[in-house]
Design a protein around this nucleic acid. Structure first.
Length: 229
DNA sequence: ACTACGATCTACT
DNA sequence: GTAGATCGTAGTG
């Protein structure tokens, strides 16, 4: 399996050869942002160590969605989802794990995209040190909790700008060949909505047996603002 | 103040 | 395939 950790591409983004996604990229419909993030490169700098990975799986949460933290109105934790787009929403769950989201939409309308899986691109040694239990390269970043460990994302990154210096997302021109949509993972409400997006067949997509199960993500999905039951 | 539970991961059967 | 870990958040009293 080809992995994209060529030193040349790593040098390229480190030298700002690739553009960072502007805030306006995030201030749009959450489903669209979730889909268009696939293939972009997440870069983090934690205590001087730079790590990077290509985004291969996302999920959308927005509005009155019962599965979303913002779904029952604003709370201290979810307030950031109602604010300006283009910042990180990091929360802690199950007593052990951080989850990384990107805030979307216009101010006043809540939304965020959960980053569920990455294909490692740079800093693999550092990722392995941060995740000593990982038994394979796949295990480094094939889940939302795992990728936060590998990339050094912590609760203190909540609210951090996605324009850097700690977190940034860059576009190196890569475009996925096939994007699929499926129901979201690990939720108990609004389980019918197909707001999970992933690059078909990518080995780092979480829940491997499902990484080919889904429907082609077309424009019809992106338009859906229908009521969620 | 107290309780229930969660956008998960790991170890073990 | 499934249970246990583990704690911040939110809802309730």
């Amino acid at each position: 399996m080809a992995n994209s950790s060529t030193s040349s591409s790593a040098r390229a983004w480190a030298a700002n050869a690739h553009p960072t996604l502007p805030r306006s990229f995030y201030a749009r419909d959450t489903l669209r942002v979730a889909r268009e993030l696939l293939g972009k490169i997440l870069v983090t700098r934690a205590r001087g160590a730079v790590t990077a990975g290509r985004i291969v799986e996302t999920e959308a949460y927005h509005g009155t969605d019962p599965a979303a933290h913002c779904g029952r109105g604003q709370t201290p934790r979810s307030a950031i989802m109602f604010g300006d787009a283009g910042v990180a929403y990091v929360y802690f769950i199950y007593g052990n794990y951080e989850m990384l989201n990107f805030v979307t939409e216009r101010r006043g309308y809540p939304g965020a995209v959960l980053i569920r899986a990455l294909e490692p691109v740079h800093g693999l040694e550092r990722m392995r040190r941060r995740r000593p239990l990982a038994k394979s390269e796949r295990d480094l970043t094939n889940g939302p909790g795992r990728l936060c460990q590998a990339m050094g994302v912590r609760l203190r990154d909540n609210g951090a700008s996605l324009q850097g210096p700690r977190i940034a997302v860059v576009d190196d021109g890569f475009r996925p060949e096939a994007v699929m949509a499926s129901p979201r993972v690990g939720i108990s409400r609004a389980t019918a909505a197909e707001w999970r997006y992933f690059i078909a067949g990518n080995p780092w997509v979480s829940r491997a047996p499902q990484n080919r199960a889904g429907r082609p993500a077309g424009r019809s999905e992106l338009r859906s603002r229908r009521r969620i039951k």
